[in-house]
Simulated scan of single mutants.
Amino acid sequence: MEPNFYRPTVQNSLEHDSAEILSGFRDIIKSGAGTRVKLLNYYKGLPISYPATLVEVSGQILELDVHPQQAVALGLSGRTCIKCGTFSHTLLADVKDADVRRMMASLHNFSYVDLMAEQRASLRLELDPPCEAEITVAGRTVAAQALDVSLGGFSALSAQPSQLVKGDEVLLKVLMPNLLHNTVSRLELPATVVDVACGDGGDLCRFSISSDAQAEGVLSRFIFQRQVDLIRELKEMSG
């Protein structure tokens, strides 16, 4: 789980919260009722969420039976979110072990979080590999790499300091692949800077976009096919 997917929500202290969560799971397992929870991971931006069954709490470790595709996502991410009606918040846990063949996982280091990703208006998927992009503003052009995409925006890493600030209006040019036909569509989109994180060589810039019907069709087709490809990848890795 990338940090931008969630926001920590400490109730007492990290140590107290983790102990409280483990105690809650012990009580659930002991009662023998309602031992199903839901795990949530993001694989290259695609939400992966299957039910899991609580098995036991051993020391500071929670053991669960999990779906094989969830086990793959757990192993790749190293963290997962847990949704369980017993708790008032979503839970975050580190993955100690994930076994695809045995369909089991071990979790530890629990905390409370708010899921930021669920507040997004549309699905945001990683571009792998990144796509060539240009940012044009005030008569100057900055080369960039588009890193992720949604129907409402892009994230891009500039090749040099962008000098952009939140609220700037720009023209964003992106070479979007057509995954079915192995071609490329050149999109030119009016965009607004919503966030800039400055780095040593370049800036990570997030944009909201204004797309016409043609551009929206290109983005919709890409996002749909990208989801299909990511699901296929997970199935192949889960055997």
Rank of each mutant, 00 (worst) to 15 (best):
L230P: 07
A213K: 13
V218W: 09
A213W: 13
N182M: 07
S210V: 06
D229Y: 09
L204P: 05
D212R: 04
H181D: 11
D203S: 11
D203K: 04
V194K: 11
G202A: 03
S208N: 07
D195Y: 06
S208P: 00
I209Y: 01
R232V: 13
T192N: 10
A197P: 00
L189K: 01
S210T: 11
V196N: 07
N182V: 09
D200Q: 13
E216P: 05
I223C: 14
C205Y: 00
D195Q: 12
R221Q: 15
F207D: 01
V194E: 02
L189E: 03
R221C: 09
V228G: 05
Q225F: 10
S185T: 07
A197R: 14
A197Q: 14
R226G: 08
S210N: 11
T183E: 11
F224N: 14
E188P: 04
L204I: 05
P190V: 03
I209S: 01
E216D: 04
L219V: 10
F207P: 01
C205T: 11
S185L: 02
C205V: 15
I223E: 11
C205M: 05
P190K: 09
A215V: 09
F207V: 01
P190A: 06
R232A: 15
L187T: 00
F222Y: 15
I231P: 07
F224P: 02
V184A: 02
L187F: 05
V228F: 07
I223L: 15
C205L: 10
C205K: 02
D203A: 07
A191G: 06
S185Y: 13
I231H: 10
Q214V: 10
L219M: 15
G217W: 12
G202P: 09
G201H: 12
L189A: 03
R221N: 14
V218M: 01
Q227N: 07
L204A: 07
V228L: 15
R226S: 13
V194R: 09
S208E: 12
R221P: 05
A197M: 05
G217N: 12
C198I: 12
R206Y: 05
A215T: 04
D203L: 04
P190D: 06
Q225D: 14
F207T: 01
G201K: 14
L219G: 06
P190S: 05
E233Q: 15
V184I: 08
V218A: 08
V228S: 06
L189F: 01
L230Y: 08
F222W: 10
H181N: 11
D195L: 03
D195F: 00
S208R: 10
C198W: 05
D212K: 08
R186V: 12
G202K: 06
F224E: 11
L187V: 02
T192W: 05
H181F: 12
D229I: 03
E233N: 09
S210G: 03
S211W: 00
Q225S: 14
T192I: 04
F207N: 04
Q214D: 10
D212V: 11
I223Y: 13
S210P: 00
P190C: 06
Q227G: 08
L204Y: 05
L187R: 02
S185R: 07
T192G: 09
